[in-house]
Simulated scan of single mutants.
Amino acid sequence: MESLKVADYMNTHPVTLKPTMSVAEAVEKLINTPYLGAPVIADNRQLLGFLSEQDCLAKMIESSYYNQQTAYVRDIMRTDVLTVKPYQSALDLAQQMLGAKPKIYPVTDDNGFLVGAISRTDVLRAVDLHLRDAYRKVG
């Protein structure tokens, strides 16, 4: 299974957010994607953080209570982002995802630039395809 690389199963064109976007703009982008969050990037694709639907929901509830919409992505994004590299094993990532870890990981190159994203569904698909292939070879 070591031949299962993240690069082979990641989304190379994930939805991304900018730190200067309003939370409302970010929500609009997120609700049109199957992912539960998105990487926040600079103009040069350097990863700056991650914003989840949960982060947005908390801020939107607060905004509705105060009847104001003034938050920006940079105000609520997480900057302690767990990332993976495209050359890492998808099986190792699957094992990592068994714990209380993110359901989606930004994929960055060795310099911290975003090259994609991979979700738990993507990893599950990778393992499933690999097992199906192995079953065919045995049978």
Rank of each mutant, 00 (worst) to 15 (best):
M1G: 15
E2Y: 12
E2A: 14
A7H: 02
D8W: 03
D8M: 07
M10R: 05
M10E: 00
M10W: 04
N11F: 04
H13L: 02
H13F: 03
P14M: 08
T16Q: 00
L17D: 04
K18P: 01
K18N: 06
K18T: 07
P19E: 04
P19N: 01
P19C: 01
T20P: 01
T20C: 02
T20W: 01
M21F: 05
S22P: 05
S22G: 07
A24F: 03
E25C: 01
E25D: 09
E25Y: 04
A26W: 00
V27N: 02
E28S: 14
L30G: 06
T33D: 09
P34M: 01
Y35F: 04
L36M: 07
L36N: 05
G37I: 01
G37N: 00
G37C: 01
G37E: 00
A38L: 02
A38P: 08
P39D: 02
P39H: 01
I41Q: 00
A42E: 08
D43L: 00
N44H: 05
N44F: 02
L47H: 03
L47C: 02
F50H: 01
L51M: 08
S52Q: 04
C56S: 13
C56V: 13
L57C: 15
L57P: 15
L57R: 15
L57D: 11
M60W: 04
M60N: 07
M60C: 14
I61P: 09
E62K: 12
S63H: 00
S64D: 14
Y65S: 12
Y66M: 14
N67W: 03
Q68M: 12
Q69I: 12
Q69T: 14
T70L: 15
A71D: 15
A71L: 11
A71G: 12
Y72N: 05
R74F: 08
R74I: 04
R78Y: 01
T79P: 12
T79E: 15
T79L: 07
T79H: 11
D80Q: 14
D80E: 15
D80F: 06
L82Y: 09
L82H: 15
P86H: 10
P86K: 06
P86I: 05
Y87E: 10
Y87Q: 10
L91M: 15
Q95P: 06
Q95L: 15
M97I: 10
L98M: 14
G99V: 11
A100P: 08
K101D: 09
K101C: 13
I104A: 15
I104Q: 05
I104D: 03
I104G: 04
I104Y: 09
I104T: 13
V107C: 08
V107R: 10
V107G: 11
V107W: 05
T108M: 02
D109L: 08
G112P: 11
G112Q: 06
F113E: 11
F113S: 12
F113M: 13
L114G: 07
G116V: 06
A117E: 09
A117V: 11
I118G: 10
T121I: 11
D122V: 04
D122C: 05
V123F: 03
L124G: 07
A126R: 01
A126N: 06
V127L: 14
V127K: 02
V127P: 03
L129G: 09
L129K: 10
L129D: 15
L129Q: 15
L129F: 03
D133T: 09
A134E: 01
A134H: 00
K137Q: 09
K137F: 00
V138M: 14
